[in-house]
């Protein structure tokens, strides 16, 4: 469903993403792992059509994101980093807007809104303006927006960020359940999430893929069999990257 070929992004003199290729099929949950500043968000922004790649190609559901951007984007549900939302709108208003802009009107819109409100447990804050929400609720509102059109492809940038442990548990369960029928690409820097959710893992550092495989395969690559040891051996801490 998602096919990324040799994707590259250069900001001025800085190479943020350098020749990244991978695919995500239906029924797969691909965990995108890496230290902060490794290029995770930049890659996701190119996959979802927000940023224009410097080089390479992205297709979603067979549609090229650059050439058939509207068609490709209609297949994706996207939760951007920090879960942006229009603060002056109510949760309900925001979800109704998200539904309408994705072609759901009238009864279809109301059904879709009801569905995601239930999935993301937003009943209690439905008529509150987003400005007044706690971080967890705001995050879930934006998550709900990404599910409104029941997309085949989900791109989630740190979907559990800002959630409390209970909410994290629920979110992971939800992602795993949805991963049975959708193609999901999600980024995180929390290693425990990998075992909880992912069917496959990509570790990215300084814009390059340094590991790609199932959690079990990756574990076999270090003697201790622990993902965090592998992660540390493959990636450089943020502080050492400054000069690059």
């Amino acid at each position: 469903m998602i096919k990324v070929e040799n994707l590259k992004k250069v900001f001025g003199a800085k190479v943020a993403v350098d020749g990244v290729s991978f695919t995500v099929e239906r029924g797969e949950v691909l965990g995108f792992l890496g230290p902060n500043g490794a290029g995770k968000s930049t890659t996701m922004r190119m996959v979802t059509g927000y940023l224009t790649p410097t080089g390479g190609r992205v297709t979603v559901g067979g549609h090229d994101i650059a050439e058939q951007s509207v068609l490709a984007k209609s297949r994706i549900g996207y939760l951007p980093e920090n879960a942006p939302a229009y603060l002056d709108m109510t949760v309900r208003g925001f979800l109704r807007f998200s539904a309408e802009i994705r072609g759901l009107h009238g009864a279809a819109r109301d059904t879709a809104v009801d569905r995601v409100v239930e999935t993301c447990s937003l009943e209690a804050v439905l008529h509150q303006s987003i400005e007044t929400l706690s971080k967890g609720y705001k995050h879930r509102t934006c998550f709900a927006q990404s599910l409104i059109h029941d997309p085949d492809v989900l791109v989630l940038d740190e979907p559990t960020d800002g959630l409390d442990p209970n909410q994290k548990f629920e979110a992971r369960k939800l992602i795993r359940r949805m991963g049975e029928k959708k193609a999901i690409l999600f980024s995180t820097h929390i290693l425990e999430e990998v075992d909880a959710v992912c069917s496959r893992v990509i570790i990215i550092d300084r814009g390059r893929i340094v590991a790609n495989g199932t959690p079990e395969e990756l574990r076999k690559r270090v003697p201790s069999g622990r993902l965090d040891d592998l992660f540390r051996s493959l990636t450089l801490p943020d502080t050492l990257k400054g000069g690059k």
């Binding site: 927000y50 509207v70 984007k73 209609s74 996207y78 980093e81 229009y86 802009i101 994705r102």
Partner: peptide
């Protein structure tokens, strides 16, 4: 400022 531009421009619109 709010980052909603990323949301807006990844919707299926031009």
């Amino acid at each position: 400022r709010l980052g909603t531009m990323e949301f807006l421009l990844t919707l299926p619109i031009t």
